[in-house]
Design a binder for these strands. Structure first.
Lengths: 179, 179
DNA sequence: TGACAAACTTACTGATTAGTAAGTAAAATT
DNA sequence: AATTTTACTTACTAATCAGTAAGTTTGTCA
């Protein structure tokens, strides 16, 4: 599952095969099919684990009790680490790009993951604005969608233009929110 | 080339085959290979045409002489139309997601396209700020990267969450820039 | 020690992939 | 009228894909 998650983030759902995973693990194709009968089952398990992990993080008191700015910094740091790790992109972003070739259950999983990310970000932005540390007009839901879409896009853009471009985008978000 | 461009935007470079194109045109696979010997040549021609088209647009006096707000509206409208057209994503965004499985020449083409989009957007933002119609802090290059990455990401996100989410992001960008 | 199940391997299948070689029909050129 | 070029088709190839069926090894537990 670690390998599958990495491969989806590096090459996309259509960009890896059972053979890639089997070779890396030193086993045969059929051994992977034993644990995950179909590619859909494998991807489904990966997304579910990712969702569970995110819920665990945001419900952990170490994150929950952080002030809004530091919550946002923590969120940005997830994407920075993703970028640093072999130029990966966001799992949700990768799956959305290939959304049209995904089965219905995988689409639903992707939708749920994206909604969960947005929901947390929206609440954090609203909390920060009410506390007087974030400044932005309009709906927190829209601002959350703007920031998340930008982070997803920036990870992809960084593949073509380098990590500096990604960092510049993160800095600009802070500039926009704090000034 | 029209079909190939659509297919890249709908299913990605790895998500379509010569067979898809041949079937749609009512010819055989080999007929496509006659015009574009390799898939790389086909994609290269598509990107080049897209780049040429964008340069033609921005050098057209009808766009060139527009005030900054309307230039930006025109730019946003490109992405709105892309979204409306079968839920396509940005060509640059699609290619960046599959960047790791692209050949060196295609990577260079993708890089060039992204840089050209960024360059124009940056100049437009700077022009608007100097004219006192756009308000934002920081480097125009960073703000341009933020907006472009967000548009690319929002087209992908809209596949999972619908066109309304995309429109909300566009509205939020206007809110951020004009308020 | 024997039974059983978990975790594989071997050996496939049928579909799809990009790409090629050789031949053909029609249109344009000389 | 003869030649050449353009735009194909037919018929492949070798690789890769997800997935399956049947057999084998390994560890656990009664």
């Amino acid at each position: 599952m670690d390998l599958a998650e990495s491969l989806i983030q590096e090459k996309g759902f259509n960009g890896f095969s059972y053979a890639h995973i089997a070779a890396e693990l030193g086993v045969k194709n059929a051994a992977v099919h034993y644990h995950f009968p179909t590619k859909e089952a494998l991807a489904g398990a990966v997304i579910q684990r990712y969702r569970d992990r995110f819920q665990l993080w945001i419900n952990n008191s170490r994150i929950k009790n952080l002030p809004p700015q530091e919550k946002l910094d923590w969120f940005f740091s997830i994407y920075s680490k993703t970028r640093a790790d072999n130029g990966k992109v966001c799992l949700a972003g990768s799956l959305e790009t290939e959304f049209n070739s995904l089965s219905a259950p995988l689409r639903e999983q992707t939708r749920a993951l994206t909604r969960e990310l947005l929901t947390w970000l929206q609440a954090t932005l609203q909390e920060g604005r009410e506390a007087g540390v974030f400044y932005f007009g309009g709906d927190p839901a829209s601002k959350a969608a703007l920031i998340l879409s930008s982070l997803q896009g920036a990870l992809q853009m960084a593949r073509a233009l380098g990590t500096k471009k990604f960092q510049a985008v993160v800095q600009q978000h802070k500039e926009d929110l704090l000034a």
